[in-house]
């Protein structure tokens, strides 16, 4: 078990992502009983008043090499998403550094879309948000509509879609682009069985096209199916990093799951 992977002289493959002693902290105004109001002194301008610092990721280090498919596991609130956002450069880090040969991309586009507009307009907007040019997205629109299976409803406002339909559209837009380093949160695999099959096929394709993939998942089956390396984060600390089978077994022992589902 290697708690930390430092650059080693024996490794001959090319490093593509280097995570060095990364800390992610959130400062939040706590408003519960736990806030130490009296101790903090108080006063209108004292930011300390109810401020709590949450250390979401603590001194995590690892190196990812070309061609690695990395599974990220850990219980809810263990800091997986914070770490992934830090790797994608979307959450500023409090300490350490992340280095990569291309900008890692988080698969997801939901925040750019506008529910009052039609599906087609949202495809255009989402595509531009992902960095497509207008020309590229216009060429891809029909494929995206077809992939989402929304041909009949594409001119209706997105707010009229069922949650499954909206999720399908979001996935179809997000997955329309290939990336060098891709971070996939498996919560994205949504929709009915037919769409699920299609999206899983597309994710496999994206994994094949991308040089490097991070897969955040609670399904040990898909982690074992697709990853060549697994990193286990617990309470913000890197608990284990290594062969998928070994790490998943240790994780299952920790959580009390007897078998792999």
């Amino acid at each position: 078990m290697a708690a930390k992977t430092k650059p080693q002289a024996t490794e001959t493959r090319k490093p593509v992502v280097l995570v060095d002693n990364v800390d992610v902290t959130y400062k939040v105004f706590a408003s519960g009983r736990k806030a130490t109001r009296r101790l903090a002194g108080g006063g209108l301008f004292s930011r300390k008043l109810n401020l709590r610092e949450v250390n979401a990721v603590k001194k995590v280090s690892f190196t990812i090499y070309e061609g690695d498919s990395v599974g990220i596991i850990g219980s809810n609130g263990s800091g997986k998403s914070s770490l992934m956002r830090a790797i994608a450069g979307l959450t500023p880090i409090a300490g350490g550094g992340v280095y990569a040969f291309a900008r890692p991309t988080l698969l997801g586009v939901g925040a750019a879309l506008m529910p009052a507009l039609s599906g087609e307009k949202n495809i255009l907007l989402g595509g531009l948000a992902l960095g497509f040019t207008r020309k590229q997205i216009n060429a891809a629109v029909q494929d995206i509509i077809k992939f989402a299976g929304l041909e009949e409803f594409i001119d209706l406002p997105m707010r009229t879609y069922s949650s499954g339909m909206a999720a399908r559209l979001r996935f179809a837009i997000a997955a329309s682009r290939n990336h060098d380093i891709l971070i996939i949160d498996e919560a994205l695999a949504v929709g009915d069985q037919e769409f699920r099959n299609r999206s899983e096929a597309r994710m496999r394709e994206m994994r094949a096209n991308a040089g490097t993939v991070f897969l955040v998942s609670h399904s040990m089956k898909s982690i074992l199916d697709t990853c060549t390396r697994v990193i286990w984060i617990e309470k913000g600390v890197l608990k284990m990093d290594g062969e998928p089978k070994a790490v998943v077994d240790a994780y299952n022992l920790h959580t009390g799951s007897d078998t792999i589902d």
Partner: peptide, 8 residues
């Protein structure tokens, strides 16, 4: 939400 999920 946009700032946290996309890079531009």
């Amino acid at each position: 939400g946009l700032v946290r999920s996309l890079n531009f």
